[in-house]
């Protein structure tokens, strides 16, 4: 829970500006925004690492620094939290474990959970980015916490790693763990999160379910066929783009487009709801300028 949080760094940078949101317990909440939006700063305020200029950041009603032995309640993995390169993953975890009175057998357990057992006694200096992310997750899990706060855990992961992370997050959620996971790429967390919080330049843009977000946005339907450019569109529909026998239509549902094509006896090779839709919406929401001028990958704006 974050209330009216503001953080100005000494250099005059306002990283977070009067931000308020709450993440529901027992759910996976995506914390989204482009690079520099203030995600890391917000999470660090929440974890008592950065002192906010104004406002409050609490977890279950208390600040992180008020929690007794906090890593047994809140597990966190943050960007720029490292391990000594000459230390092994096991030793890195053991030194944290002993400070929190956690047993060494728990260290072996979390190494197993994140799939680092085989590499546990190798120096962290030789780890790949993906292995470091797994180690950071192991640190977060060490205290068997009820809340997980993960900053860009998908950064540096290969597609296999991202898929593993999805399964991992789902598993945590199924155990009743509340997860707040940040990302600057919606698609990384899209399939995993229940709710999203989207920020831009330190301020809230959207909070709610992913589903509600898509409903609010323009629907897009992709149709493909040899003569698809002959498809006559009713008034409120519009053709967003036409290329190589493929048309993207906005303002209509997939059923309506299918019926129209059938009525006009046009041969179809594809009829689908556009999946990039959400990403577009996200980019539109988080763009610095007016969202309608957004142009992504040459596909053109919504109009």
């Amino acid at each position: 829970m974050v209330e009216h949080l503001t953080k100005r760094f000494g250099s005059g940078v306002t990283a977070v500006a009067d931000l308020s949101f709450s993440a529901a317990p027992g759910k996976v909440t995506g914390f989204l925004g482009p690079n520099g939006a203030g995600k890391t700063t917000t999470l660090r305020c929440l974890l008592g690492l950065v002192a906010q200029t104004e406002g409050k950041a609490t977890i279950d009603g208390v600040t992180y620094r008020e929690i007794e032995n906090p890593i047994t309640v809140v597990g966190a993995s943050l960007e720029a939290s490292g391990a000594h390169p000459a230390r092994t993953a096991r030793n890195h975890l053991r030194m944290i474990a002993s400070a929190a009175k956690i047993t060494d057998s728990r260290v072996s357990e979390v190494l197993e959970t994140v799939g680092l057992t085989a590499a546990a006694d190798r120096k962290v200096g030789g780890y790949s980015l993906g292995m470091r992310q797994r180690l950071a997750l192991a640190v977060a899990l060490l205290g068997d916490p009820k809340v997980l706060i993960l900053d860009e855990p998908a950064n540096g992961l290969d597609p296999e790693g991202i898929s593993w992370l999805r399964t991992f997050l789902r598993h945590q959620a199924s155990k009743g763990v509340s997860v707040l996971v940040s990302s600057h790429v919606l698609s990384e967390v899209q399939q995993t999160v229940d709710d999203v919080i989207i920020i831009r330049s330190g301020s809230l843009v959207y909070q709610g379910s992913l589903h509600a977000l898509t409903e609010g946005g323009p629907a897009e339907v992709v149709v493909r066929g040899p003569n698809i450019d002959q498809l006559v569109l009713p008034g409120q529909w519009s053709r967003k783009s036409v290329a190589n026998g493929e048309t993207v239509i906005t303002g209509a549902t997939i059923e309506e487009v299918g019926r129209a094509a059938f009525e006009q006896s046009l041969e179809l090779h594809e009829l689908s709801a556009k999946s990039a839709d959400l990403e577009q919406l996200f980019l539109g929401l988080t763009a610095e300028e007016s969202p309608t001028n957004q142009s992504v990958n040459g596909k053109g704006g919504p109009e």
């Binding site: 690492l49 620094r65 890593i71 966190a76 943050l78 391990a83 890195h92 944290i96 929190a100």
Partner: peptide
């Protein structure tokens, strides 16, 4: 200062915020 250099200070202060 090595804890700051290697960024282990983050997990150190997460574990012991006092």
């Amino acid at each position: 200062s090595g804890e700051y250099r290697n960024q282990t200070i983050t997990s150190t202060f997460l574990t012991t915020p006092v």
